[in-house]
């Protein structure tokens, strides 16, 4: 009986062999039935992508183009199928966005193309595909990743949407700043709002949840930055649009409230080392609207100051805020029509878009910068929990 000598890592070549007839089972167990909250929680980030790629490597090694095509097509269709089925679940969409990107990076990193090999180890360069150029499939995967990203944005928008107006505008994070005596006992902390309303803390907690799930899935840092920038844009646009449509939101104290809330969001960015994500800049129109609520609005100098300060607001938005502005008490005067005319005259040369509201549905174009992995394929082991016993390491 041959000695059962355990093969050392160095003997494996980082490929996975499977029978053609087992491909449906591979797709079912690794994609369709895999639960991100279930066994996937304990996987190394991107493991499904590495497994699929190691299967592609073996089919390439066999020089079997049909097997390569079939696996790639089934993989793409499998991911689309699971996202059709569970596409409103943030964890599922985030999980397959990060695995689709990792699969795309593997196809590049091991393509044999010079530009993608710069960070490869010698061993990794030995693991490059030998027979097929999969550049066209990489393009299809990139198209799929864009679709998944847009789906992720819709999911997080649906979760955030109900929180924004209440958390950013209505709830008084700074108690009493509006001059209204807090009813009954002063609320202990800003996160305890009336039943069912959201506070700024609710929004921050949700941002934390999104961020930790994406980190847990091993999502590329550059992609996390783009998701966060998109989230902040949505928060800023929805908040500003509501401010522009509600007289009760245009007061000095609301300006103070908004500036405080924005500072808390900036604090969150700093905590997560995301100050360079472009997210803060998407809040600029809201920040300027809040400042406009707080600055003096009487003299020529005031008009000059407002025109130079509000470069991220359109003329229509500036005029609207000034028209809606409501003095917080009888000692304060309303904004005079003549002052608003003065502003309009000063801004008449701007080539502003006429629309009043921001496009809260706008999705920034997404990019997937190449992000090679240092993980050595020959060391990857398949956990039994994936029920992939019909696949063997080569």
């Amino acid at each position: 009986r041959p000695l059962n000598i355990p093969r050392k890592e160095k003997d494996f070549q980082g490929m996975l062999e499977y029978k053609k007839e087992d491909e449906p089972k591979l797709i079912k167990n690794l994609i369709l039935d895999l639960k991100p909250r279930g066994v996937a929680v304990n996987l190394i980030p991107g493991l499904p992508a590495y497994i699929l790629f190691m299967c592609v490597r073996h089919a390439d090694y066999l020089n079997d183009d049909q097997k390569v095509r079939s696996l790639l097509t089934s993989t793409i269709n499998g991911i689309k199928k699971i996202l059709k089925k569970r596409g409103d679940d943030f964890e599922t969409v985030s999980f397959w966005l990060s695995n689709t990107c990792r699969f795309l990076h593997c196809l590049k990193q091991y393509s044999g193309e010079e530009g993608f090999m710069k960070h490869n180890s010698t061993r990794q360069n030995e693991h490059c595909l030998t027979n097929f150029d999969l550049a066209e499939y990489r393009q299809v995967l990139s198209d799929l990743a864009i679709q998944i990203y847009q789906q992720l944005v819709r999911v997080l928008e649906n979760i955030l949407q109900p929180m924004i107006v209440s958390g950013m505008l209505e709830h008084e994070t700074i108690q009493g700043v509006s001059g209204v005596k807090p009813t009954g006992l002063r609320k202990r902390t800003s996160s305890i709002a009336d039943e069912g309303t959201y506070t700024l803390d609710s929004i921050v907690r949700q941002l934390n949840t999104f961020h930790s799930i994406m980190c847990q899935h091993g999502t590329d840092p550059e992609l996390i930055k783009q998701v966060v920038k998109q989230m902040f844009y949505i928060i800023g646009a929805v908040t500003l649009n509501n401010l522009l449509l509600r007289k009760d939101m245009c007061s000095w104290s609301k300006g103070m409230q908004i500036r405080y809330n924005v500072s808390q969001l900036e604090e969150w960015l700093r905590d997560k080392n995301l100050m360079n994500s472009g997210a803060k800049e998407t809040l600029e129109p809201l920040i300027q609207a809040a400042q406009l609520l707080q600055v003096k609005k009487k003299t020529d100098e005031d008009a000059e100051a407002i025109c130079s300060m509000c470069n991220a607001l359109t003329t229509a938005q500036i005029v609207k805020v000034l028209n809606l502005y409501t003095p917080v008490n009888e000692f304060e005067e309303r904004v005079l029509v003549s002052f608003i005319r003065n502003i309009q005259m000063r801004l008449r040369d701007r080539k502003d878009a006429p629309q009043l509201l921001m496009d809260a549905k706008h999705i920034f174009p997404v990019t997937f910068p190449f992000n090679p992995s240092s993980l050595a394929l020959e060391t990857i082991q398949i956990p039994g929990s994936l029920s992939l016993g019909f696949i063997s390491r080569v």
Binding site: D65, V68, T73, N77, K80, G112, N131, F132, D133, E136
Partner: peptide, 29 residues
């Protein structure tokens, strides 16, 4: 220097893959 160039595998678009999938689903009992 590589022995021979890799063969470019022509890929269907996402939409074409979807059609393939639908036809397979139709075939499946």
């Amino acid at each position: 220097q590589r022995a021979r160039p890799r063969v470019l595998l022509k890929a269907p678009t996402l939409a074409e893959m979807e059609e393939m999938n639908l036809s397979e689903d139709d075939d499946s009992p």
